Simulated assay, not measured.
Amino acid sequence: MKLLFLACLSPKTGNHTTAERIRSHIESAGHTCELRDAAAFQSPAEVANLISRHPPFEGALAIHLHRAGSLLLDIHVPFGVIFGGTDINEDVKVEQKRVVMEQVLLKARFAVAFTDKLKEEAELFLLSQSSKIYVQPQGIQTEVSEKFHWAEFLRSSGVSSEPVDELHVFLLVCGLRRVKDPLYLVEMFSEWHRENPLNVLVVIGPRIDPVFTVEVEAVVKKAAGVFLAQERSQRELHAAMKRCFTVVNSSVSEGMSAAILEAMDLGVPVLARDIPGNAAIVHHEFTGLLYSSPQEFVHQSQRLLSDHDLRDRLVRNGKRYVEEHHCLKRERETYQRLVDTLRCA
């Protein structure tokens, strides 16, 4: 079966990684799956034209009902969609977008939500299509680069403190766009760093929003103890995560943060902003720590620094949680089974 797969494919983002992983699941079942960037298309008509070319596509898939799924409304082959966090957390608040998302959901053969909470929200805000919405958490697999050099990474990020092994590196993994809110902690962290110079915050991720990136760079340049790192390959990023003190999330909105789950899998504690998408996978004081203000972030960080039993418990429970709930094999089987439903007339 030949499938077209649309997603937002900014390099080295969670969306891109998720799309590539799902594509590999589909192709491992013997299908052909052509992954395309939704941003490359201006209208549903362009996608419909691509679908009909010889040899024609026999089905389609999209991540994000509005940004990518809306491009499938004119096609005449069956398709499935995967909810992104922006769909339910942001896009449903805009009436015009919500109407389009309802049209996509009505026409789709199936829809996938990463969590039960996302499914419940979809049923609440969109026309009820409960029977076609499946819950499948992201499958997680981490791989660490053996050639990664921690000291070199820190120096290239602007961290000059020595010795590096004494530093407590808080690693904020996010693409530079407003919804990730990378500046949320900067002022408070900078004040804390002045009191405790061994604590540093490193923000790492692709420059997605050029205008916002300039703003972030200007603020970070003036902030003590806060640094910007260049994006790395996934294997290098996982190596950096494994060496850091804790992985941080400060997003305003999340569907399911792969970085949080990857940190858990790597045996690294997580400090995540208390929003629905994060609270769905981070159980406070069990698999990680949640905070709802910069001040509370510092408080929870201090607990993590001083309470070794707490840190060990979070690491142990986080690893077990990912193994039990984010199995790559189960994810592969789910998508292969759902794609098979696109064969039916």
Rank of each mutant, 00 (worst) to 15 (best):
S52V: 09
S70I: 01
H299I: 14
V200P: 00
L124F: 08
A279W: 04
E236M: 02
G318E: 02
A122Q: 05
L71S: 10
S128L: 14
R235Y: 12
R109E: 02
L3V: 12
A258I: 15
F114D: 07
S253V: 12
D274Y: 11
S160W: 01
G255Q: 14
E195F: 12
K319T: 08
E231A: 15
F245C: 12
E46R: 11
A218S: 07
S251W: 03
V159M: 10
V268W: 05
V104A: 02
L71V: 04
L71H: 12
H308K: 12
E121V: 10
V77K: 03
E323L: 15
L105C: 08
F41I: 05
H31F: 07
C344T: 13
V298D: 08
N49T: 14
V202C: 15
K319S: 09
A111E: 05
F245Y: 15
S28C: 03
L305N: 04
A259R: 04
A62P: 06
P294F: 07
L198D: 06
K329I: 15
L342Q: 12
A224K: 15
D265T: 13
P269C: 14
Q300M: 11
H283P: 01
K329H: 15
K329Q: 13
S28A: 11
D181W: 02
E34T: 13
A39V: 10
S257W: 09
C174F: 11
T142V: 15
T17M: 07
L304H: 13
L126M: 10
G69I: 08
I260C: 07
K147D: 11
K97R: 11
L271H: 00
A218R: 07
F110R: 00
R337L: 06
E262R: 01
G277V: 08
L127E: 08
S301C: 09
G80V: 02
L338Y: 01
Y134T: 15
V247W: 05
L171T: 09
V144D: 11
G69T: 05
R177P: 00
L9E: 06
D340M: 09
V47H: 04
M241P: 05
V92C: 04
A19D: 02
K222G: 00
M101G: 01
R178T: 12
E262F: 04
S292N: 15
R235I: 09
T32N: 05
A151E: 13
I275E: 07
R178P: 00
K119W: 05
T86Y: 06
V99D: 05
M256P: 00
S157V: 07
H168P: 03
V47C: 05
S293T: 12
A223C: 09
P206D: 11
R23D: 06
L183D: 09
R178A: 10
M101I: 04
A40H: 07
N89G: 13
T334V: 11
L118Y: 15
E152C: 05
K221H: 11
A48S: 07
A223W: 02
H168L: 14
G318D: 01
A224I: 03
K180N: 13
E20D: 03
I204N: 13
Y335V: 04
R207T: 12
